[in-house]
Design a protein around this nucleic acid. Structure first.
Lengths: 219, 219
DNA sequence: CATAGGTGTGACCGTTCGGTAACAAATGAC
DNA sequence: GTCATTTGTTACCGAACGGTCACACCTATG
């Protein structure tokens, strides 16, 4: 198979003094970032790029400017690391929800609109689909520890969206929420397989149409 | 340790009912199936169950009641086999389209309804999502030969559905087609991550609602 | 300065996996 | 029956991978 996995069993030829830290996103993070955090951040990125099974722990450690041993001191196994990255991704989603609620307090309809916009923007930016759903595709092994994380996130996401739909006062809020979720998941997976010009391009319009059909249209 | 060879078929008499080949699913295929076909069929199944990266060629060959060497004589590499299974899956989809057109000739609206029903049934049966989309999730490596197969299928599927929507005479047939595709992909991926009780359960209703909103409602 | 705890390094192990070589056995056409 | 093609069998290779060990290093704190 052409699984040219980006592993390479980490060999640093020259003993480069750590002037780096270019690993972390070029933000204000010139302050020291603990190895553990670098590992999680890097793993999130690489799992998204290459798939969970497509990247090795060696490559993750090296990309995080550390080494495999330190990785295994913080995470007992690769599966543990996978679960942690999934948890971090879930928390990011939670932050988005909090942001929406802050911007439109007590306005369920506006929040729903903001949800569509936020996810649509996210869709433009991220070339990969939902990391959580992708993990579910890759990790079919029965009893994999990530399954619990995936299930928890999916249930929580559904509850939040259903509750939001319910607060708009419409009938059948569950159906609206599930429809929006299907559109979202579909757009994410379609974006991976067909790119931005594929069916994913009409995600926002499809959501607006659906909202209108359910009576949550904009004024 | 070689396993008990289940092969030894007793083709003693001349007109013995071919009871052999208990390998293939208990269908009407008691006629001899060539190793190559057994491999493709088995690979489709195992890829779906364990993921492409989750099953090895050895296991596939054994499950197909043959061996790795024969597999490699028919397919130059595992990637080749993957592409072939994807092609076969595409053809099955083509068969579904032909069936729909046969059952409702020159009735675009009925065909659209049948499309929703057929995919909804398929969703109930198959625990795994769209094999093609799943492959896209698993095989992120640039230049993987499967990408061409995936792209071809996705484009063709989209064209067929768009054309069907256009023949109903509605406005914006592209948007309707893309919306239905998003719902389908979403339902498939959601069914994997959340099961049948998740958002996938409302796939059919969401499709019907969408059809109604676009003016393709039932009489 | 001394010490302790987190970190870096490289070697190593066992397994799995994709892929190949060489040879024996079965099968089918003539 | 003969012969060519297709299958089966076994053993093997090399690479990649997850994971561990022993030991050196660094740095903060007392």
């Amino acid at each position: 198979m052409s699984i040219a996995v980006v592993n390479k069993n980490a060999k640093r030829g020259s003993t480069v003094k750590p002037d780096q830290e270019s690993t972390s996103p070029p933000g204000l993070s010139s302050v020291k970032v603990a190895p553990r955090d670098r590992i999680v951040t890097t793993a999130c990125e690489l799992f998204r790029q290459h798939g969970i099974r497509g990247i090795g722990v060696d490559a993750i450690a090296e990309a995080a400017s550390t080494n495999k041993m330190t990785l295994y001191r913080h995470f007992g196994s690769k599966d543990d690391l996978v679960c942690e990255t999934l948890r971090v991704t879930s928390e990011k989603s939670g932050a988005m929800w909090a942001d929406i609620e802050t911007r439109f307090p007590d306005d369920a309809k506006a929040q729903l609109g903001a949800w569509v916009t936020a996810l649509s923007d996210c869709l433009q930016r991220e070339p990969s689909g939902c990391d959580i759903a992708n993990a579910a595709v890759e990790l079919k092994e029965a009893g994999h520890p990530a399954h619990a994380v995936i299930e928890t996130f999916k249930i929580l996401q559904r509850e939040k969206l259903t509750d939001l739909c319910r607060r708009t006062g419409i009938q059948e809020p569950e159906t609206l929420a599930d429809t929006l979720l299907l559109l979202l998941e579909g757009a994410r997976v379609s974006r991976q397989a067909s790119g931005l010009e594929g069916p994913a391009q009409c995600f926002q319009r499809a959501c607006r149409n659906t909202l209108t059909a359910f009576g949550v249209g904009a004024p």
